[in-house]
Design a binder for these strands. Structure first.
Lengths: 211, 211, 211, 211
DNA sequence: CATGAATGAGGATTCATTCAT
DNA sequence: TATGAATGAATCCTCATTCAT
């Protein structure tokens, strides 16, 4: 592990190397699965020696945690919900969900494939992911839903389950796409709006059929 | 492998033994993950010797395929859609989806957890599962949606994506529950109706706001 | 193991079953090698159940010893050397060696292939085979050679090595044939006389070019 | 497997390690037989870890092929037959055969014991050995015999079978010695000349008793 | 005696991890 | 820091052998 502290150039280098390894790990894990993939394959894919991995990660599992952290950082990047009150809520949500999907596309489905697989296999990782990613997202989303409901923008019956339904739908669609569904692959750009439409029907925006 | 052919009692015995092993495998795999679990642990859980497993399954992977087949058999059991025309479509669908969820509960979430995890990790298994379970289900569902649309029972915009959205939602909710979401666990009995409601909003039953 | 003692019909049956198993073992062992062959394969080849083998042989190794005993019985069947003195020694030896080769052909090369292979691999079996088959043969042959020499039929320089040379030649030719040499296979019937000719040259029959 | 290419020192090291392992394998296989010997025993005998074997050989069978290749290299090393024309053919052949026997002694009987045993057990290895070692040797020997016959040095009846007889004799004597024959062991140094004498009798050098 | 399912010891092989260079 | 050879624990699987039916 690097020792010189606070050398910004060193830091940059280390970070770059870590990312280089994580990129390689993502590809290899996505292709062969975490357990079937060997550290040698990851090293080869990264163009480095096997031992070098251990200068940047404590062990193989740490590679997985590294991927999970990448998702964390990207997913939980604070969003600007402030403008929610202004303008049409449907437009706002469309923009918001589209952005999330773009982030997803940017990260690559492979990362999710790899992380989800291990999450389902490992109860500790499962708990970790739920606490670090899922739950915070749900809490934030719930807050906004409640606020909108209080502000009378939407009529909301059950924010708890609503949020989980939306989240589940997103998650499920991602998995179906990972599984190779050709329709979802071809029309993936339509999916965000589809989700929002269903979402808004569910939450029944006030005034839709009102007046 | 047992050889005496066409002895129905023998067949029953073999089937029972196979199920005994698959039950044990489900528990062990769900707890430790497929790869971290050892055949010895499965044997211990089943109360048999390690070698006995190999009298009934070719290898460890075959255990996984055995679990997948169990899902196949249960999931693809032909349903009685015939009554669809009669009575209220909402009631029919509610009953249908509820039944599917009961089947799921009966199979146990562990099976899905195990199978899904490996499906995400193994591209061959992924293709197999998609072709054997997902696609057939989608095709059947699409047919019914189209028929209902033709019969004027519902107004349907996009059966392809609609079916995938519903399927994805179901899948995603299952995964969120597997991940330990306490709300979904506590109110799992409400979920089927929730799904149907969203589903029916999407497909817009004719005459909902009509008259 | 059979218990009724001295029942000749039983004995015959037991013997037949043993031979049935040994025949199967010979074929299977010759094809796959002793260690690679499984008792299940032997049982299948013999058309019996795996367990039945153990009613007639203590274990897998005993099958090998059974094959070795078969060779013993056939090889060491007392020969009629008595006529040696009378008639031409070359004719006598030709007849004798031809008979040995016929015995060999009758037993089948497979048996030798199997037994020799294990003999080379296992020092205990090696010693056993040497003491039970090779050495007695050599001793008998030596005796005859010496007697012939004393009787003035042949002029013999070194009976010890001569006998070993002849024996080695026979053994080596068998092995070359087992290895699939096409010439030896095609002209195997010429081989006995060839051996005898070399043999007689070596021992230099008195009067060959004498007087 | 070591990868740095074209580093001659590295190459030497790798070769040395391979030989170290093959030497250990020879001893262990000769003592317990190929199948009864474990890779652990080979590793212990070589003074390395079990896994290290697999850095140099693909699997246990590859160790055997390594031994066979050693024989190949030594056996097929081009010999200097050129001097054949000059000098006495008997002297030349004596020198030649003696040299072959010395090579054999140098390689060690154990290697032959091990390789021959498996050759007899495995039809693929058998074919390989015949094609790579036996047949080439026979072809070369035949060529020399024919040339000598044409040059009138010897009178040759049947080069094909003659060569096989000589080869078989050599092979058989080796096996008898491996089997522990005390006479052959004690007088092994006499054996080459013995073989040559028989050989030359068979091919009947022109002018032996001629004129 | 015949059967063949159950057994479990044994062994080849893999691969994450270490560490001397 | 980078390397990659060495390590050896861990595990899937085979198969000779047993024994209840």
């Amino acid at each position: 592990m690097p020792r010189k502290k606070n050398d910004p150039i060193q830091e940059q280098f280390i970070l770059a190397r870590r990312n280089q390894i994580l990129d390689a790990a993502t590809q290899v894990f996505a292709t062969k699965g975490f357990h079937r993939a060997t550290t040698r394959e990851v090293a080869n894919a990264a163009g480095i020696a096997e031992g070098t991995i251990y200068n940047y990660f404590a062990n193989k599992t740490a590679l997985l945690l590294g991927l999970l952290n990448r998702i964390n950082e990207t997913e939980l990047r604070p969003q600007q919900y402030e403008q929610a009150a202004h303008g049409d809520i449907r437009d706002f949500l469309r923009a918001h969900v589209r952005q999330r999907f773009e982030v997803l596309t940017h990260l690559g489905f492979e990362v999710f494939q790899v992380v989800l697989s291990e999450i389902l296999a490992d109860s500790k990782l499962r708990a970790l992911y739920y606490q670090q990613v899922i739950e915070p997202t749900f809490i934030i989303a719930e807050q906004y839903f409640r606020r909108w409901a209080e502000e009378g923008v939407i009529r909301l019956r059950d924010p708890r389950l609503a949020v989980r339904t939306i989240g589940g739908m997103t998650l499920g669609l991602i998995i179906l796409r990972i599984m190779g569904d050709p329709d979802l692959e071809a029309r993936w750009h339509e999916v965000p709006d589809l989700v929002v439409d269903l979402l808004l029907v569910d939450v029944e925006p006030v005034g839709r059929d009102g007046s």
